[in-house]
Design a binder for these strands. Structure first.
Lengths: 211, 211
DNA sequence: CCAGAATATCGCAGGCACTGCATTCTTGCA
DNA sequence: TGCAAGAATGCAGTGCCTGCGATATTCTGG
């Protein structure tokens, strides 16, 4: 119904990236860079919105039209990556076992993590050092857990919220967090996808035979 | 006052519960009750510290000598329960497989949850309805995950932080959250320990054969 | 029982994140 | 070019949270 119309609109926007849209993206990036520099130099807590605004050459009020909270500057495109996992999962065959589908979906995005390695390490380092930033990231992950569980529920033709889908989504995210943490702590030299695969594999085989 | 001096002294020496300590606990409980009533009636966001203080008959400033943040009133004794899981895990034989030990430790505390059912349901309901409270609970859980992983690491005689211990701790907490959520959504009629056992069992057997 | 030590409560001033609203400026389009 | 949409800004205000100094309460040793 609205599908054709939407396509036209999207195409139109992609062809002509107006000055307005371009400036908005530039400024957003500018705020991110300025903020992350300040966070690294003086710490997250000791950096104020006013300081970020000054460094990014915007009015303090303007900051909040780009990011809802100070924490979200660090997480920024975090959300788009996780949304991609969900898209990936939706496109996979329903005949595939749910855990396999989850693993495959996470691995696709994990490969991208390697590409933007340095930038991600900076952000994750700030996140690991500050409780409120980490709390915010967990809060966002809770939202994605809901979305993941919902997709899994539909795949299994469950009518109501079921424990199994929730558990699968929750453990998948646990795999991701554990892998990311280990990746950071070990100097992010190992391949992230391999770590994730290890975690998913462990849970696939069962934890009774662990160790 | 009405009691003989000797009794007071004996009580003090044996239990160390002076008037000071007793009043502190009473007031803490009083603040919790007042706050939770207000949260239920007007919502967490629409309740201010000043309102809580007025209802609990204390100065607003005093609130923060009992709770570090507004969110923590809802979570209150949450932390002591999770600490008990860690104590339980420490006392278990090291020959026991880690996942079995984790399951047993969580089940012990889950039984207590049933005892304080109504109070917990009130708190969890507020938590489920408010993002910042849930975020705070996840932040606290992250701390317990660290502690759990550390105990598991020592059990396995690992020298440095290892991926396996972290994954075990993380998935165990995922089991707990999933179970609690399902318990709440289904009208908290089912036995919580049974739900937790289901989750742990699923992961013990392996997720490849899921569904 | 009573001073002084230890500790709790309280009031005050202030910092900072975040919001709503009204105004001004920039950009897109006819 | 002129007008409508949207972005940036300034301002005033709310509310959480903190440090500090003053006051009140409880504990302890004599």
């Amino acid at each position: 119904m609205h599908q054709p119309l939407q396509c036209v609109k999207i195409l139109h926007m992609n062809e002509e990236v107006g000055l307005r849209e371009r400036k908005k993206r530039e400024r957003r990036r500018c705020i991110e860079d300025a903020a992350i520099d300040l966070f690294e130099d003086h710490g997250f807590d000791r950096t104020t919105i006013d300081q970020i605004a000054a460094a990014a050459d915007i009015a303090p009020r303007t900051f909040f039209s780009y990011f809802p909270t100070k924490e979200d500057v660090v997480l920024a495109d975090y959300s788009t990556r996780l949304e991609r996992i969900i898209d990936e999962l939706r496109e996979r065959s329903e005949s595939e076992p749910p855990w396999d589908a989850l693993q495959a979906s996470f691995l696709v995005v994990a490969a991208d993590y390697e590409a933007a390695r340095d930038d991600l390490v900076r952000r994750f380092t700030i996140m690991a050092a500050n409780g409120t930033v980490y709390a915010r990231s967990l809060q966002l992950q809770a939202g994605w857990e809901d979305a993941l569980a919902e997709v899994l529920r539909q795949r299994a033709n469950q009518k109501t919220e079921d424990l199994e889908s929730r558990l699968l989504a929750s453990t998948a995210l646990a795999c991701m967090r554990s892998s990311l943490r280990h990746w950071l702590l070990t100097g992010h030299n190992a391949a992230l996808p391999a770590l994730i695969q290890t975690c998913f594999g462990q849970l696939a085989d069962g934890l009774t035979h662990s160790r």
